[in-house]
Design a protein around this nucleic acid. Structure first.
Length: 441
DNA sequence: AACAGGGGCAACCGCTTGCCG
DNA sequence: TCGGCAAGCGGTTGCCCCTGT
């Protein structure tokens, strides 16, 4: 395993396309800036700081046992000395810095103070939502590798990122029923999500804000959940029993996210050489696998062509870890097919009906096989009712929730994805390129 | 107003990694 | 190849402020 390669908790390297599912919540964030800024000033002005420093100095220092060094918080005078010295002479050797700067500190302490607080390029203050999203996204992939995460946040230190994670983000994730280590649903939430499976319509609904409602989502989510509706077991049964009409044109699937993202794809299952999955109504249209994302909040739209290995957005390519635009591969396309098929199977077999609103549609195909934001006309796959409106539509609408929720926030459960086979190497070992993929840091 | 508990965050600890002789 | 040193890094600690009672 290469250093920097991200893996699942089972050690399976994940396909980078997970990184496209970037999520966050849109809940109001408590502004820390004023408070923190105030603290900084107070700290700077603290008169007693010298006394504390003197107390700390008596403690000695394990790595500098030969000399009497000061510990504890830095005084403004010490900061000034360090800044003045490092600015003038640099820090080629930290162990020599305190001596030359006239500080009774060990070099390690000087280094930390400089890196975490005195560096001129540091960005102080509260984390922006974008930074927060970045942290979550990268953490999902890299785990507690704070230094690597901090590299994605200019002006932020690993220590700062780590503290922000531990004091803020972690709690938010837990509040949303997510394991901050794996970013998967916590067992308790998972239980609530799956319920007893006896009656899908009574199944608990898990909302993106972490609230659990047992009655059709009575709890008003403060943020929009990522709702996907899926074919139900009835649909599955129907499909198995009846099967799609032979004259049926290639299907298009729009997976709608009420929070503002839309994605769709078409798939050539036969070309992929996969066995037909009962009820998984892909047809052979000779096309590729195309996902299109539209951020309805930001008004942005982009697409990924898994088969043709391209996307319409440099950021997508970057997110895929391939700044040259070749971030997509046949393996990814295959993997995507696998996972959607797996999700189909999982959802159907478990009765989870986890939210993928799959509407099978007659052709003609729109360019690239996508229809964005249009009323999908076609033959809805038969659904079970779970709530009046859903029942009327023949749909089983289970709010599976985004793991991250929030406006524009979507996510797939990594464990589910993994169980469905979307990891590097999926598709009969065709994922070599992906296995080599490393995080660009 | 006083107190207690919790949260935030700077700093420290100790292990790992990389470099050099 | 090995050992020593310095830097890097993640985990932990402990102080101080804030907030609720």
């Amino acid at each position: 395993m290469h250093k920097g390669q991200f893996t699942s908790k089972r050690g399976v390297p994940f396909c980078v396309c997970f990184r496209l599912y970037i999520h966050c919540w849109a809940g109001a964030r408590r502004s820390r800036e004023d408070r923190v800024g105030k603290r900084k000033l107070l700290e700077r002005d603290r008169v007693e700081l010298g006394e504390r420093g003197a107390r700390s100095a008596a403690m000695g220092h394990h790595c500098c046992s030969k000399q009497k060094v000061k510990r504890g918080l830095w005084s403004p005078e010490e900061d000034e000395k360090l800044v003045k010295y490092v600015t003038a002479h640099g820090h080629s050797c930290w162990s020599a810095v305190p001596k030359h700067a006239g500080l009774q500190r060990c070099g390690k302490s000087c280094r930390l103070r400089w890196i975490n607080y005195l560096r001129p390029d540091l960005k102080r203050g509260t984390f922006s939502e974008q930074e927060e999203r970045t942290i979550i996204d990268v953490h999902r992939i890299l785990g507690n590798r704070w230094a690597q995460i901090a590299k994605h946040l200019p002006g932020r230190t690993d220590n700062e990122v780590k503290n922000f994670w531990n004091s803020c983000i972690k709690k938010k994730l837990i509040a949303q029923g997510l394991d901050p280590k794996t970013h998967n649903l916590l067992p308790a939430s998972r239980t609530l999500l799956h319920g007893n499976g006896a009656n899908p319509s009574n199944r608990a609904q898990f909302h993106s804000n972490g609230a659990i409602a047992n009655d059709g989502g009575a709890v008003a989510a403060t943020t929009q959940p990522f709702t996907i509706s899926s074919p139900t077991k009835a649909a599955y049964d129907t499909a198995v029993t009846v099967g799609p009409p032979p004259e049926m044109a290639p299907a298009i699937y729009d997976v709608r996210n009420t929070a503002g993202m839309l994605m769709g794809h078409e798939h050539d299952q036969a070309a992929a050489g996969a066995e037909p999955i009962p009820g998984y109504p892909y047809t052979d249209n000779g096309g590729g696998v195309l996902m299109s994302f539209r951020d309805q909040n930001a008004g942005l739209q982009t697409s990924m062509d898994f088969m043709n290995r391209s996307s319409s957005s440099p950021s997508m390519d970057h997110a895929a870890g391939m700044p040259n635009g070749n971030g997509f591969s046949q393996a990814m396309g295959t993997a995507f097919v696998d996972v959607t098929a797996g999700m189909w199977t999982t959802a159907v077999e478990s009765g989870m009906c986890a939210g993928i609103e799959v509407t099978q549609q007659q052709q003609p195909l729109a360019p690239q096989g996508l229809v964005h934001g249009e009323e999908v006309v076609g033959r809805p796959i038969v659904m079970n009712g779970a709530g009046a409106a859903a029942a009327d539509k023949g749909m089983d609408m289970m709010d599976v929730s985004s793991v991250y929720g929030g406006a524009g926030a979507t996510a797939f459960d990594l464990e589910l994805m993994e169980s469905c086979g979307l990891f590097c190497g999926a598709g009969g070992g065709t994922g070599n390129a992906l296995e080599q993929l490393q995080w660009d840091c």
